[in-house]
Design a protein around this nucleic acid. Structure first.
Lengths: 252, 252
DNA sequence: GAACATCGTTCATATATATGAACGGAAGGG
DNA sequence: CCCTTCCGTTCATATATATGAACGATGTTC
């Protein structure tokens, strides 16, 4: 944590983040403990957040975020005007595959999910927009990494353990790097139950004008519906979408 | 604006809201003018927002929201656990109608859109999650109003003009009240090009345990695809979804 | 190209915040 | 039933913020 420029504001924002990680709500003393605040300080900040309608307090004294935070955040994602274009092409791929699709942005060692279209099939993936997932265990993430030079990937994961999420998760950096080399050949990243059991994903990265990975698209489906044929067919669709989005990005 | 409890935080939050209304970004002096801040104060707040990564500044000196604001907000909507249930039933209705659906919450004289499922048909509605629309000109909104006593509706719109959004918008309160009486008979609200031309919507309100309207579901389609038959069939689906969600709400 | 605007940044000090300590109420234990 | 403990709230004052004024940089006008 860098030294604050404006302590009140910094702590208020930290408080919003903390509450966003605790949907069930937190009590004053819990907030103070988590952020190492004196209770009088925490009280003051929470009061302001309540007055500004970002937080409400339940009858049991639990502080939670309100939908005002959602409103502000939602416009942030639509401010990145490319999101409209991404959604358009996502929709077109979805029309063919009818499997849950996600769109994400690269964010440190994680991918941040910013949009999704859910499959109408009864067996489908659960997920939600706004979450983060590790790069090394998702199709979108591996697509991002494959769009980076190997040195950059090594640097990014220098000293960072690849914690297993399932028993299929790649936990050895060299193995990951090897797979990234394959992905660079085709442009298509495949992930088979590395993030959640019985779920497979196919992803592509979309690069900005400077060629740096920025966005990714993926298809997620129950593993039994993802075979060689689907990987080939859906992969092609994703690549086509990727190229079209990149063309728009260049024209911007 | 109430007197601040903590001025820094209050102003910082106002600043986030302001930026959320200006996706194209604002310069320091524009921010200061809009919020009536001295430029040194605006500068300090923006610096903190940048340091906390809620805002970034473009090469041209334009301040914009980042996706960090989106992340925090997204979890706020998922914190209202009912959103999972709503989405589930929305999905089931969507599987039949294949028209764009929305889910919204009642917020003052407006409906706040919190979720959507987009039609895969080539002619479909443009909209996005996080926006607000006036109650009097949307199917969701009229469903909300019909779930309130007439006196409450009168009070809500006391002295508030019903500004036309299209030439079909209901702009006379008595006419709106009359239509609400009809909606109370069936439970289904229909809106025909009152919000946007060539778009028709069907909506239902979902009430909480105390019987107060809280959520709404709607189907939006090009007007030519919405005839008597669709209104009846889709209206029934929506009513069924409404009842199921209300049952869950009572059980919570 | 000189004079003038306009904008962002810096800084000293008047003003508002942060917090330890004290208070009051609620819950739990003996 | 009293004592203890744990929370949330209030308050005075030590500390940090807010801001007018001054500065430097950049762009504009004539």
């Amino acid at each position: 944590m860098a030294e604050a420029i404006n302590r009140s504001l910094q702590r208020g924002l930290q408080l919003l983040e903390l509450l966003s990680e605790h949907p069930e709500g937190l009590e004053l003393h819990e907030v103070c403990k988590a952020l190492e605040l004196p209770k009088s300080s925490g009280h003051n900040l929470l009061q302001q957040l309540v007055q500004s309608r970002y937080v409400r307090v339940s009858p049991h004294g639990k502080y939670r975020l309100t939908l005002k935070a959602f409103e502000v955040g939602a416009s942030a994602v639509h401010a990145t005007e490319i999101s409209q274009v991404l959604r358009q092409y996502m929709q077109e791929v979805f029309a063919v595959c009818n499997e849950t699709m996600h769109c994400g942005v690269l964010s440190g060692r994680e991918v941040l999910y910013i949009d999704k279209i859910e499959s109408t099939q009864s067996i489908r993936m659960a997920s939600h927009v706004g979450i983060r997932m590790p790069l090394y265990a998702t199709a979108m993430g591996k697509a991002f990494l494959a769009a980076m030079p190997e040195d950059a990937v090594r640097a990014l994961f220098q000293g960072v353990p690849l914690s297993p999420l399932t028993e299929h998760t790649i936990t050895v950096l060299d193995k990951l790097l090897e797979q990234l080399r394959e992905i660079r050949q085709t442009g298509i990243a495949v992930e088979d139950q590395e993030n959640a059991v019985n779920v497979s994903c196919i992803g592509v990265a979309i690069c900005d004008r400077e060629g740096k990975p920025a966005y990714a698209l993926s298809i997620s489906a129950p593993s039994f519906r993802v075979n060689r044929a689907e990987i080939d067919a859906w992969g092609k669709l994703l690549l086509r979408a990727k190229n079209r989005v990149e063309r728009v990005l260049k024209a911007l």
